[in-house]
């Protein structure tokens, strides 16, 4: 445990990280993204394509976590790793459940987009309407 009198450069978090590690992380990330980009030209079926991009992205992310951020279970880094592992499910829950819920909501509440381009409908056609049109008088039925 270092105190503020000791040399801060001796701190464990400074000591971690080497030239090699950072360069490897760079190369893996760049290669993965490059390969994923090239996959667009391959015209794979969408599911295969998506799986490929997801897999390559995961490899890039893991290499960054391990080599850039230097996450491991050493004394200096353990709490960062733990907090990340505890938070990752929240990313997945938030995005996953949202996408799942909206896939059914869209299907059940939206008219198909083809209907949108029905002729004869345009926003400012009606006076007193439109996003910031002049306000009209209220009607009070009696």
């Amino acid at each position: 445990m270092s105190t503020h009198h000791a040399n801060p450069l001796d701190h464990a978090e400074i000591r971690q990280g080497t030239v090699l590690r950072y360069i490897v992380a760079f190369i893996i990330s760049a290669l993965c993204m490059g390969a994923a980009m090239l996959a667009v030209q391959l015209k794979l079926p969408f599911l295969h394509y998506a799986a490929l991009v997801v897999a390559l992205t995961l490899i890039a992310l893991l290499s960054q976590a391990a080599l850039f951020f230097g996450l491991d279970i050493s004394r200096a880094q353990i709490w960062k790793s733990v907090s990340l592992v505890l938070t990752v499910p929240l990313f997945i829950i938030s995005v996953g459940l949202t996408v799942w819920a909206f896939s059914s909501l869209y299907e059940r509440t939206m008219l198909p987009p083809s209907g949108v381009t029905q002729p004869g409908m345009s926003a400012p056609a009606v006076p007193g309407m439109g996003p910031m049109g002049a306000p009209s008088q209220p009607t009070l039925l009696q």
Binding site: I14, G17, T18, V19, Y22, A25, F26, F68
Partner: peptide, 11 residues
């Protein structure tokens, strides 16, 4: 990468 290498120099 460049910033990370800077942190190697920091050591």
């Amino acid at each position: 990468l460049s910033y990370s290498l800077a942190s190697v120099a920091l050591k």
